[in-house]
Design a protein around this nucleic acid. Structure first.
Length: 556
DNA sequence: GCCGTTTTCGGCCCGACTGTTTTCAGTCG
């Protein structure tokens, strides 16, 4: 079992206990353990072999026994007993915004509803409003939530699919029969939500590839197969396709299987009149058509083909361009590590600066810092900086934008910070006008440098709030406010379309990890991918800049 | 269920908003 799979089961146990109205602290324990394991640096199987499970923070005797059982037997009896009481379909209802554990419990117990489809039907038939504590709004939340889920049609986030795809690809490459293998399809284009994993395999032996696929531990079942393609299902309910081609077709197939339908149709229409001879990479393919190479993230037929033909595609941001991370939490608020540890992790990525941006006082549950604490934190950072030579920690804050658009600290305090990130963490349901005004007011504050996760969307969980984006972007442009591309794969906020629009308006952006754990610094790559889909160049992104240039910009 | 101790139990988990209520339970960050 992988770390992720163990963490998911512990989290589901917590969900079921919550529905069963168990001791909140017990529930918290399971959540904490799940979170620890999710963020573990080491493989849980290796830890078990070394008898070190107990070292995981938040794991005691009882949880340790369950983890060991999962690793040894691939199952957990306690969890199975719980799922008998509360079926998986009931847990799925929790993904609907505004529908929590108590509501789900009542619906399950009183109406016997144990899946999303029946729930939607009950809402449409107005049966939910008769239940205690529920009304028309609850039914509206259910219908609205189902709309969001259906919209994405069972797609999963890139953050879930990409690591699985990489693992699967690397496994296939172990086979002698597999000469080359690449992730293709929408994952390679870097879409934030994807429907399946596509792997292109170069091989002359279909049977050996099939055998290899069959021995993959993440395989649930093979759905169909023929000599050119193996389709099946992996864990986490993700479908896959392994497309098998001979060596001479490999690179043209990469182009074919990576591009969106619209992109590839145009290219291959051209190829019909201009037969391919020998090509050794994708670059050759595009050159053969008289075009420059088109990066996978752009292959959507959004103007890239014309520009590539005119040799006018500009270079895109790449992960190597990133020189620092401007949105990082420490254990002063809800982060897992000390400032020093986050700095060390950032240095190992060759960053030359980071900003520590813990939450402000209103976000009490996240341990938001009051004025006294943040002032103390600044002194601590100053002290740490004295020991640094080619690295600098910026004194920052992720300050809450309050309901009325004012900020959670006064101007005097904000003035003393190196980086001020402003963001919304409450009152998501204000109307468009009020919500937009609120954010614009923050963007206009001369001490605010960056607006973080502007639209508040959580992929597959919560829609963006109602916003007048045009007016907000105008305000940002006018006030030199930087917009964040939050790299967390559940957010990717702002998205590629807004980023592209912002670039055209001359707005600068920052790609930030929003790390709460040192491992989260690695989420940067998702943000970079999203920025590339928004056609951003290195100069559009302030944390590719040299330290001095960035600091000057922030000071202005 | 975990943790830490003035060590085997008591503390851990805050606060605003929302919707359904008529004083409050549920949700969420």
């Amino acid at each position: 079992m992988t770390n992720r799979e163990v963490a998911i089961i512990l989290d589901r146990i917590a969900d079921i206990l919550q529905i069963k109205n168990e001791n909140p602290f017990k529930i918290q324990t399971y959540r904490k353990a799940a979170n620890s394991i999710y963020h573990l640096d080491e493989d849980i199987n290796t830890l078990k072999e070394a008898n070190r499970i107990k070292e995981i923070p938040g794991v005691g005797k009882a949880v340790k026994a369950k983890i060991e059982e999962m690793i040894e037997k691939g199952r957990c009896e306690y969890y199975e007993r719980l799922t008998d009481e509360v079926p998986a379909g009931v847990l799925e209802m929790l993904s609907l915004p505004g529908i929590g554990h108590k509501t789900v419990k009542t619906i399950y117990e009183q109406l016997g509803i144990d899946n999303l489809d029946d729930l939607l039907q009950a809402a449409e038939e107005r049966k939910i409003r008769n239940l205690p504590g529920m009304g028309g709004k609850t039914e509206y939340n259910i219908k609205k939530g189902m709309e969001l889920l259906r919209q994405n049609g069972g797609k999963v986030t890139l953050g879930l699919a990409l690591p699985l795809a990489e693992n699967f690809r690397d496994f296939l490459l172990e086979s002698k029969a597999v000469e080359k293998a690449s992730i293709v399809g929408s994952i390679r284009r870097g879409k934030s939500l994807v429907s399946d994993i596509d792997i292109l395999v170069c091989s002359v032996s279909y049977l050996e590839v099939l055998q290899k696929v069959n021995s993959y531990k993440g395989l649930v079942k093979i759905l169909e197969n023929d000599p050119s393609c193996i389709k099946g299902l992996l864990t986490h309910h993700i479908e896959f396709e392994v497309i098998i081609v001979p060596p001479q077709d490999y690179f043209s197939s990469m182009v074919w299987t990576t591009g969106s339908k619209a992109h590839r149709q145009i290219l291959f229409e051209d190829i019909r009149y201009s037969p391919l001879l020998e090509i050794n990479n994708e670059n050759d393919f595009y050159n053969h058509l008289g075009m420059d190479y088109i990066p996978p993230e752009l292959r959507e037929n959004c103007g890239e083909i014309e520009l590539a033909a005119a040799h006018k595609l500009s270079p895109l941001l790449s992960i190597e361009d990133i020189k620092g991370d401007l949105h990082i939490h420490s254990n002063w608020s809800d982060g897992a590590h000390e400032i020093k540890e986050m700095a060390a992790a950032a240095k190992s990525l060759n960053y030359s600066y980071i900003a520590i941006t813990d939450h402000s006082k209103s976000l009490a549950i996240s341990g938001g810092l009051n004025e006294e604490r943040i002032r103390t934190q600044q002194l601590v950072i100053d002290k740490l900086n004295e020991e640094e030579e080619d690295f600098q920690i910026l004194r920052g804050s992720e300050v809450d934008i309050l309901k009325d658009g004012s900020l959670d600290y006064d101007d005097e305090l904000l003035k003393g910070l190196d980086v001020v990130i402003a963001s919304v963490h409450s009152n998501f349901k204000l109307d468009k006008e009020k919500q937009s005004e609120r954010i614009m007011q923050a963007a206009k504050n001369k001490h605010v440098d960056i607006i973080a996760h502007l639209t508040g969307r959580l992929l597959n969980r919560r829609s963006a709030y109602e916003l007048d984006l045009d007016r907000i972007l105008e305000t940002a442009a006018k006030n030199n406010t930087i917009l964040e591309i939050n790299a967390h794969p559940d957010r990717l906020d702002i998205d590629e379309n807004i980023a592209r629009q912002a670039k055209e308006m001359g707005i600068k952006m920052a790609v930030n990890s929003d790390a709460h754990h040192k491992q989260d610094l690695g989420l940067m790559r998702y943000g970079v991918t999203s920025a590339r889909r928004g056609w951003l160049a290195p100069e559009d992104v302030v944390n590719t800049w040299e330290k001095e240039a960035l600091f000057n910009y922030l000071r202005e």
